[in-house]
Design a protein around this nucleic acid. Structure first.
Length: 561
RNA sequence: UGUCCGAUGGUGUAAUGGUAGCACUGCAGAUUUUGGUUCUGCCUGUCUAGGUUCGAAUCCUAGUCGGACAACCA
């Protein structure tokens, strides 16, 4: 397809096009650099779409790089889930990299800095080092070890590497500027001792580089041209550049560019909070369909296309943002509307007996699978004298403009017949338990035999062969729109939505017996549902991905307000 | 009373000194065998005050508001 012209660029694309134009770079190279200490979420999806999107747009390259510099926090479980999620979103990396692949090189460069007098070993406690850094408004205090000779530092650093010193007893620091207004420049720590085996390097190292030292150098080693990260790293940029200054004299080196992270209303995005939800069993796991994780969204029934469209639409800028979760819902509806076959499911059943329909008779009626996609074809749904309809679809004393079933009223059964309510049967408590209706044999298929108008069309299932299933109705996890906007004495968990998961039993049309985990359907008039992996041969379990828009519900709720 | 970053409808995001546009939301209507989809129309915006300019969302100055930074996390 021809690429659209006059398409506006985001500020990062502008930088890239400028670099291409001036010849600074002829080929663009980006990277997505997660730390394997948690599952990816929709915010990461934004970053993935950005980095891999640039690769595709400018015919460049993009690496997946695990920022695995802290073995005390990281785990292979996360490595695998991250690779799965990136691929599921539809992207393939040019190289699979690990920061740990560069530990030897990083060590050599550190030795070089020590020899040049630009790094030193500090034997003070973490508390002391922190205290000497003071606050941004005051000058810092130099460490008594700041002017140790390179020879002594070399010896000490080698001892650190060999494991001769306990964790926390010393660190390697870059000698930069203790008076910098930027705290990150006040002799930042380059290496610390962690006596833990690493998933990839095993017992080879007991010193590990810090993010600031490892990240830019890793970018440099891989030939990254544009190192895109989130805004909180903006203050790190001088440090990023300082480390690169030490090893690169050519100027051909990566440029760090920061953009605003994604925030979505009614959910949390920090890995720490997400981990809390999992470990405190507030959700069933990282892939709980209420989680904003990629795996959660996938299980919920979101498609990669819908997430990519969402990422495209929200744009990339530097101002803080809070995206309405409704926008995400818009994109999944848009995608599923085209793709999902329609079926009928009754969530809250009310029995209907069609008194003039022959007892014992079953017939099969043709139903269109997807009006938006003729190639989806048709199916046959069974019909008989006894059916179930939705309780909501009958009202004894309806308000104005209610055009579903009512006493003496006529309604169309989707793909079947017009029926008219003749009698309402109640139990001793006055609850409606059954409806007696008559049908018009001439209205088969739902066609009007004489041109008469029937405004309402409702869904139904055949009472004789419908199948039972469990439906998990999900709603937003939190009741507060902006969970970063909390009073001092509040916690985000104060706003957990007690109704974020409601489980109901539903009756489904028989054609669904062959549905498999991952399959998505539109339950007509109810929403999009996908088969969950918890399904068994006895019982199907569905997750509600999202409801359909419901303008009737809106009218009702507006009137009752 | 630090440094850095940011500020355009309800929410996002364009306009790169020259008509403030697009999407979502909301509202109204049309179509409809899903109160779905689709289609049409409408509402709502440049943080404030100065300055530069024929002309400012855009450039300058000051202010206001918001965010990030003081982990041996990334």
């Amino acid at each position: 397809m021809e690429e659209k012209r006059n398409e506006s660029l985001n500020f990062i694309e502008e930088i890239i096009e400028e670099d291409l134009k001036t010849g600074k770079w002829s080929k663009i190279y980006t990277r997505f650099p997660p730390e394997p200490n948690g599952y990816l979420h929709i915010g990461h999806a934004k970053s993935i779409c950005l980095n891999f999107g640039i690769k595709e747009k400018y015919k460049g390259k993009c690496n997946l790089r695990f920022d695995d510099t802290n073995p005390s926090k990281e785990d292979v479980e996360y490595v695998n889930s991250i690779m799965e999620d990136v691929r599921w979103l539809g992207f393939e990396w040019d190289r699979l990299c690990y920061a740990s692949d560069y530990f030897d090189q990083l060590y050599e460069w550190a030795v070089m800095l020590i020899k040049e007098g630009k790094a030193y070993v500090d034997k003070q406690s973490p508390e002391e080092i922190s205290r000497q850094r003071t606050t941004p408004t005051e000058l810092g205090i130099e460490s008594p070890y700041r002017y140790t000779s390179p020879e002594e530092n070399l010896k000490l650093f080698e001892e650190m590497r060999m494991g001769l010193h306990p964790e926390g007893s010393m660190v390697l620091r870059a000698k930069i500027d203790m008076n910098s207004p930027n705290m990150h420049m006040r002799d930042p720590i380059m290496y610390r001792i962690i006596k833990k085996p690493h998933d990839r390097t095993g017992d080879k190292w007991c010193i590990y580089p810090m993010y600031d030292y490892a990240h830019g150098q890793s970018d440099y080693i891989e030939g990254i041209t544009h190192s895109i990260c989130t805004l909180e790293f903006e203050v790190h940029r001088p440090l990023y550049d300082w480390f690169l200054d030490q090893i690169d004299k050519t100027g051909k080196r990566p440029r760090q560019i920061e953009f605003a992270r994604l925030n979505v209303s009614y959910t949390v995005m920090s890995k720490r909070k997400l981990l809390e939800l999992v470990t405190n069993k507030i959700v069933s796991g990282w892939d709980d369909p209420r989680m904003p994780t990629i795996s959660g969204l996938r299980r919920r029934g979101y498609t990669p296309e819908s997430i990519r469209n969402f990422a495209e639409r929200i744009g990339v800028a530097k101002r803080d943002n809070l995206i309405d979760v409704g926008l995400l819902e818009y994109f999944i509806r848009e995608d599923l509307n085209k793709k999902a076959n329609r079926v009928m499911a009754v969530l809250n059943p009310l029995k209907v007996v069609i008194t003039n329909y022959p007892e014992g008779q079953t017939e099969y009626l043709e139903a269109i699978n997807n009006p938006e996609d003729p190639s989806a074809g048709t199916r046959k749904v069974s019909f008989s004298r006894e059916i179930y309809i939705e309780k909501d679809d009958f009202m004894e004393n309806p308000p104005k403009k209610y055009f579903r079933l009512q006493p003496g009223g006529e309604v169309r059964l989707r793909w079947a017949y017009f029926i008219k309510c003749e009698e309402v049967i109640k139990d001793e408590k006055g609850e409606i338990v059954e409806l007696r209706c008559t049908y018009d044999p001439l209205s088969k298929g739902g066609q009007s035999p004489d041109g008469r108008k029937v405004k309402g069309t409702i869904h139904w299932v055949n009472a004789n062969d419908c199948i039972e299933s469990e439906l998990r109705l999900y709603d937003r996890l939190f009741t507060k729109e902006n969970l970063d906007d909390l009073a001092e004495d509040e916690n985000y968990t104060d706003y957990l939505n007690p109704e974020s998961l409601v489980i109901v039993n539903a009756k489904l049309e028989k054609t669904l017996v062959s549905a498999k985990p991952g399959n998505t359907f539109q339950f007509e008039r109810k929403g999009y549902f996908c088969v969950d992996k918890d399904s068994t041969t006895e019982k199907l379990v569905f997750n509600r991905t999202v409801t359909l828009k419901d303008s009737w519900a809106k009218i009702i709720s507006n009137e009752t307000e």
